[in-house]
Write a protein that binds this DNA or RNA. Structure first.
Lengths: 195, 195, 195, 195
DNA sequence: AATGAATGAGCATTCATTCAT
DNA sequence: CATGAATGAATGCTCATTCAT
């Protein structure tokens, strides 16, 4: 395989862009090659399949994501602060790897069925454990409401954060931290005004 | 074309199921035909293309959705009650047309580019107007918080509701109304406990 | 099969019209059925295949054509008068069976390869024999030029007559006899003015 | 697309042969590929559709034909000499591009309806203008007969020449020039012997 | 590293034909 | 006589992938 990791990364960034914009299935290898200024066949010097490009994009993203999540979880913060940190890291990740996040959102569901992408399921499980655990700790510590179905709450928070990748554009008027702040405020306090 | 609307509806329900499960592009006409217990070519007696099946699924769904939304909007409710009614209707619609909603979620973004699916854009605009308007009225009436970016709030509420279609299974343990109630409680009051 | 020959004839006339206008291959059974005001499948009550419709159209036409040609050939006319009579009958046939002639022109070449349409080859051979023989008799009798390749002359006369079916419209400003007269004049005397 | 014009030309010659022998519609892409010793899909590396092959075959032919016709028309010859030159060039063209001419004969009528092949109509109009004009000049100059319908004469001459493509085989016993000479003699002087 | 040309499997769609009603 | 619904084979075309150069 190619001895030049920089070229690979360039090409993967290009591929991720196209995957995110058009969907994995709808993206032809030729479109990626066009965007990279080369012929379709030439991509096979660098990668052994279209699927392996997708694989590398997603696994790189998840590896980085978990490095940050693990750091947060290891910090021993209180439940509310943990949620805040996780959400903030998530928006930062959307900012850094918008394409990968968008691809993950759209494709992970049916990819999990494939042997090769089983690690997506593992990640999802770890994810659920971390968030659900934090929420439960919060309920026990009486900082989160006890009258809500925790599983429903988990889905609510999880989706709320990640769907943002579908409209978020890096370099827009709000910084990821600002968006995280407002989203957290909504999730935690609600949008209704209190007297 | 075929004057038997019952068979069409049956076939459309089958098609919607497969589209929702595998994605429109990844769904081959043969898979739909298999699921319907017939040969691929036979579908063309009832529909003139795979795209027209998708079209019929989405437009039927949107027509029904707007019938209900319009009824809500015409009722002259207060902002908070309007939001509550819209969210509740949305969850009911997810319950009734889960597949169509899931398809809409996943495919509408790139479908809008096609002439034929321009009505999706129209619907989105009407949608934004209704929700955004209600939120703004609520801010003015001092029932919704004024310190949040309204556009961000709109996206938050919108996504929050519709993504549910990706995990919701009709006939599960929570009724659509119950889910709506909990979601509304989270969106309006937040998940943090108040002292 | 159907006991109503009148209905068959009607349907064959319709089929011939569509075959002539669009070509045999490009004509779908549905187009014929549409033109006849029925459904595609219903044609199979009257005919057992699309090919058998074509067969019946062509064989009917050839049978009638040969009835007339044979009458001419049996009349014992002089070579020039024979040619004149054959050409005139040909134009009359174009007038009566324009569609069949047009179909014959366009399709006979590749149809001959099919067992079922071998009679087209027989007809062509009989045709060549009659015309070529008459031309040769004319050369011997010194009423036709001897300095021309007879085979070339045969093709010239043959094509000259039949291609007319491609532009002739029954009921136009010239009667078949008038067209025959002018064509014969050109073929026999040439278009150059003599001093 | 492919920057190898030689391969394209080879493939187009193969395609033209099959189109001419079997008709455009009856020719499947697989048949062309078979004749070219490759798989059907491979043709799409060189051309973007079956129709575009046909287009290229016909437009190339017409371009060359008109180069020669225009040269003749620009030479300022007398009417009879113009007709002679045009007919001779036509037979030469049949000799060079037999397949293209045969395709043109058989398919142009229904192709003209397609936007893409509108240039066929333009060519036909130019064609009619050139031939009809020359014939009329000839009648005025008293070298062609005045007692014939000029339009009928035009069709007679036009068809007479081009139908030859249906039986002509390059490399046969007569050179194109020889065939042209005999045809011209028949068209101009007629086949009847004069005393 | 990249190109040019090809493969082969699969896809949406068409269409002649069948047949129970 | 005709319909409605289906079959199954074929068609034009796409696309991930291969490989000699």
């Amino acid at each position: 395989m190619s001895p030049s990791p920089e070229r690979r990364e360039e090409l993967l960034a290009t591929a991720a862009e196209v995957f995110a914009a058009q969907g994995y299935n709808a993206t032809t290898v030729r479109k990626i090659a066009d965007a990279a200024g080369m012929l379709a066949g030439s991509l096979y010097y660098h990668f052994d399949s279209k699927e392996s490009m997708l694989d590398e994009i997603l696994s790189t993203f998840l590896t980085e994501l978990w490095a940050r999540y693990d750091a947060v979880l290891a910090a021993g913060l209180a439940p509310r602060e943990t949620i805040e940190a996780l959400v903030t890291e998530s928006f930062r990740e959307i900012d850094r790897h918008r394409d990968a996040v968008a691809i993950y959102q759209k494709e992970s569901k049916h990819l999990v069925r494939l042997e090769r992408f089983h690690y997506l399921a593992d990640s999802q499980q770890k994810f659920e454990k971390a968030w659900l655990g934090t929420l439960e700790r919060g309920v026990a510590a009486e900082v989160f409401r006890a009258d809500l179905d925790v599983r429903l709450t988990y889905r609510f928070v999880r989706d709320t954060v990640w769907v943002a990748a579908s409209w978020y554009r890096p370099g827009g008027q709000h910084s990821p931290e600002e968006i995280a702040r407002q989203y957290l405020s909504m999730v935690l306090e609600g949008i209704a005004l209190r007297e």
